[in-house]
């Protein structure tokens, strides 16, 4: 039994962290979030050059990058490409920013694909989107050839868009719909890892503020009404982290518990991240409620993650079915 990342994985973590600190400080992230595009397309090349899209990376390496990039609130379609599209990518899509339209099916006709799929993550910042045809096959579509409507999204660093295809040319992928189970499992585990990064940042912000802000002549972190909220954020971070890493490991090893692990991690870590941000906002008082402060951006990411691929209750329903409806399935 060994619950630790390898030395190489920890090295990767440091290099990711260093890069993000140098290139994606809060000020730049805010500027990008407020821009029309929502990100800097030129930064994609940097991520590729650093090896973040290297085919040799496994899910545990992706877990490390997901946690750290969420900590920095990196605005880039890396999450959609790696947490969603990854198992479907072929050589032609390698190194491209790609998303997956999970929320619908489009008609396959002689002239191409036709139909509309809404709520597609990062649709405005990818070169390709993978859709599911009514023949049950998966297709890659160039977003430039489609109609893309990016919707105003609470989390401005991860916007949702509506894809409309009308006899749009598409390329059929070798990967079939059976791969979508793996896509979902990975997506849940990596969403949980992102949630851990978000919650950790909320903890760091809350702790830093509680250590410096003074009221009634004392540092507010000395008041238990404040410090116990910070302690509760710490607890949420640790519990979420344990589940998220477990889920990532289980998915990477095709463990028999991979699906319940993914559901447990996704539900608990994203709800934990929402709580962490809410408590952090409360600890900050009025300043935490302003648009100027960075916190609301993490709060919005936490809520995005909580809503992504099913709120907690959907995952708990799946877990309940696994532990209550079949004999001897308890672990």
């Amino acid at each position: 039994m060994d619950f630790a990342f390898s030395a190489e994985q920890e090295l990767l973590r440091s290099s990711v962290r260093d890069y993000l600190r140098d290139r994606f400080g809060d000020e730049r992230v805010v500027a990008l979030a407020e821009s029309d595009a929502g990100w800097d397309p030129a930064s994609w090349r940097e991520l590729v050059d650093m090896g973040w899209l290297d085919p040799s990376l496994g899910l545990l390496e992706h877990a490390v990058i997901a946690e750290e990039s969420a900590y920095a609130l990196l605005p880039a379609p890396w999450f959609s490409t790696v947490a969603l599209a990854w198992p479907l990518l072929d050589d032609a899509l390698r190194d491209e920013p790609v998303t997956v339209a999970l929320g619908g099916v489009v008609a396959v006709g002689p002239g191409g694909l036709t139909g509309t799929v809404s709520l597609v993550p990062d649709l405005g910042s990818v070169s390709h989107v993978i859709v599911r045809g009514d023949d049950d096959a998966l297709y890659a579509v160039e977003t430039a050839a489609a109609s893309v409507q990016v919707r105003s999204t609470m989390d401005r660093t991860r916007r949702l868009g509506e894809l409309t295809l009308s006899s749009t040319p598409a390329r059929r992928l070798d990967a079939g719909p059976a791969s979508l189970a793996l896509v979902r499992r990975r997506a849940l585990a990596l969403a949980a890892c992102e949630a851990v990064g978000v919650a950790q940042r909320a903890l760091d912000l809350a702790a830093a503020y509680a250590k410096t802000r003074e009221q009634f002549g004392r540092i507010i972190g000395a008041y238990q009404g404040v410090s116990h909220k910070v302690a509760d954020i710490f607890v949420a971070v640790q519990l979420g982290r344990s589940l998220a890493y477990w889920a990532a490991w289980a998915a990477s090893e095709d463990d028999p518990q991979a699906d319940v692990a993914a559901s447990a991690a996704k539900a608990a870590a994203t709800e934990g991240a929402v709580l962490a941000c809410e408590y952090a906002i409360q600890v900050h008082g009025g300043i935490g409620f302003t648009y100027e402060h960075i916190l609301h951006r993490y709060y919005k990411r936490a809520q995005w993650l909580e809503a992504f691929e099913g709120y907690g209750r959907e995952h708990r329903a799946a877990i309940a079915a696994a532990i209550l409806d079949s004999e001897g399935a308890v672990a």
């Binding site: 619950f3 539900a267 708990r316 329903a317 309940a320 532990i323 209550l324």
Partner: peptide
């Protein structure tokens, strides 16, 4: 059913946090 699943999740959170601590 939702609440029972939550207890199960809370158990796993304890278990794997403990593994992490042990490592």
């Amino acid at each position: 059913r939702d609440q029972i699943a939550q207890q199960w999740i809370d158990l796993q959170a304890l278990r794997f946090t403990n593994y992490r601590s042990l490592t």
